[in-house]
Design a protein around this nucleic acid. Structure first.
Lengths: 100, 100
DNA sequence: CAAAGCACTTTGATATTCAAAGTATCAATA
DNA sequence: TATTGATACTTTGAATATCAAAGTGCTTTG
């Protein structure tokens, strides 16, 4: 069981980051405001958790202007997708372990 | 998606506690030493996380003597089982959400 | 040109984590 | 029978994490 637990990724042991990653697994790109609405979190919370994921190279952040307003959007990286998938697999293993 | 994320239980956002609960879902009772070995954690880590689960009434702690040595064992409560199941359902929902 | 809004980021008080140090009891060795 | 070691935990606290309020830098509106 230790082997399974070791595969659980600390970065994803957080509601907001779990939500961000889930959203980016199915959406090519999601912008700041949409993500905030989707998750129902404060902007401060979203911003700091985005930073954590970015520093881990799990997501990419793209900033641009859309009619004179800043627009920040996120996408998942290959590394992020693999790490998240590994985390989900570990969770699944933990549940399978329960049954044997 | 906010509705799903809200169902994620903060108490279970921790490797050790996730492991404890998984173990107690399938084992009527597990003692301190066995749990520590099973999870591969330090005794301090196990002890403090057991306290968290106990204060949340998710597990019961039973202390007794087995040939003059203290023996502490844990079991899941009805409340704990329900809470953990709800948490697992939320995780599952989050994954299902990914597919639509 | 203030004042208000928008789209974020930073700050910091508060909460959490977990291993080292501590406690209590028993067993063995000298 | 002191003394050291082992076992079975618990407590402490330094390090780290969380997240909402306050801050920043724009633009727009009155």
């Amino acid at each position: 069981m230790k082997l399974i637990i070791d595969q659980i990724n600390k970065v994803f042991e957080n509601k907001t980051r779990l939500g961000i990653m889930s959203a980016l697994m199915v959406n090519e790109s999601v912008d700041f405001i949409s993500m905030r609405e989707l998750l129902g979190v404060t902007d401060g919370n979203l911003s700091s958790n985005i930073s954590v994921l970015e520093h881990n190279k799990y997501i990419k952040v793209k900033k641009r202007f859309i009619n004179k307003k800043t627009n920040t959007s996120f996408s998942i990286t290959k590394v992020g997708r693999n790490a998240f998938q590994a985390h989900l697999n570990a969770l699944e293993e933990l549940l399978k372990w329960r049954l044997k």
